[in-house]
Structure formats: C-alpha cells, structure tokens
Amino acid sequence: MSDKELFLLLLPVLIPVLLTQSILLFIDAKKKGSYPWFWGIWGLIQVPTPTLCYLLFVVWPYKRKQKRS
C-alpha cells in the first residue's frame, strides 16, 4: 500500500474529526471569550494538539477563576 492510498483511506476519517474539533473549540472559546477564531482555525489544521493546548491554557485557568469567585 502506497502513501497516497493510505492517505485516501484516512481522509474520510480525518476530515470529520478535524471539523468536529474545530467547531467545538470555536463554540467553547466563544462562550469563554477567548479568541474563538484562533482556536477554530487551529483546530482545522491538526489534531489533538489544539485541544490539549486549549484545555491547558483556557479551560483550566477559567475553572480556577470560577472557583475563586
């Protein structure tokens, strides 16, 4: 199996995963007021790094801030 064939087999799985990640990051970032377009576009480019960084830099600080209030 060549690289091109493997890519064509993975494409139908990869596209929905990237779109779903991007949409969910965008919606949640919009709710939290944290650069939704940045997170949405980055979510379209690769997986799972944007989600992990989003959790680390947006979600956890947001939850800490909510607990202090």
Rank of each mutant, 00 (worst) to 15 (best):
E5Q: 14
S2K: 10
L19G: 10
L56Q: 06
V59E: 10
W37I: 05
W60E: 12
A29Q: 15
M1S: 13
V47L: 10
V59I: 11
F26W: 07
D28E: 01
I27K: 14
Y35E: 06
K30L: 13
L11Y: 03
Y54K: 06
F7N: 07
L25S: 10
P48Y: 11
L19C: 10
Q46M: 08
K31S: 10
R64W: 09
S22G: 13
P16F: 09
A29G: 14
S22M: 10
I27D: 13
L24V: 08
Q21K: 04
P12Y: 02
C53P: 07
Q66S: 03
P12I: 03
Y35T: 05
P12N: 09
D3P: 00
Q21N: 02
W37H: 05
L14Y: 00
G43K: 10
L8F: 08
G33L: 05
T49M: 15
P48H: 10
W37T: 09
L10T: 03
K63E: 03
S2T: 15
K65T: 01
T49H: 04
Y35N: 12
S69K: 04
K30W: 14
L18S: 06
P16T: 03
W42F: 01
P50E: 07
Q66C: 01
S2R: 13
P61M: 09
F38N: 07
V58L: 09
P16S: 12
Y62W: 03
Q21I: 00
L10F: 00
Q46V: 04
K31D: 12
L55S: 07
F57Q: 04
T51F: 05
L11N: 01
L25C: 08
L25M: 07
G40L: 13
P16Y: 08
V13N: 02
K67T: 05
L25D: 03
C53T: 12
R64M: 06
L14K: 00
Y62M: 03
I15Y: 04
K31Q: 09
K30M: 15
L52F: 15
K31G: 07
L10Y: 00
K31R: 12
K31E: 09
K32P: 11
V58F: 10
I23A: 13
Q66V: 01
T51Y: 09
K32N: 14
K67D: 13
C53Y: 15
L25T: 08
R68G: 07
K4S: 00
S34Y: 11
R64P: 00
W37F: 05
P36W: 15
W39F: 06
F38C: 07
S69E: 08
L19R: 08
I41Y: 06
S69Y: 07
Y62C: 00
I41K: 05
V47R: 03
V58G: 08
L52W: 15
Q66I: 01
V13C: 10
K67V: 12
L52S: 09
V59S: 09
V47W: 01
I45L: 04
P16L: 11
L8H: 08
F38W: 12
K32Q: 10
A29P: 12
I41G: 04
R64Q: 02
L55R: 09
P48T: 15
G43F: 11
L24W: 14
F7L: 12
L10K: 00
K31A: 11
W37V: 06
F38L: 11
G43M: 04
F38A: 13
P16C: 08
T51C: 02
L44P: 01
Y54W: 14
W42R: 00
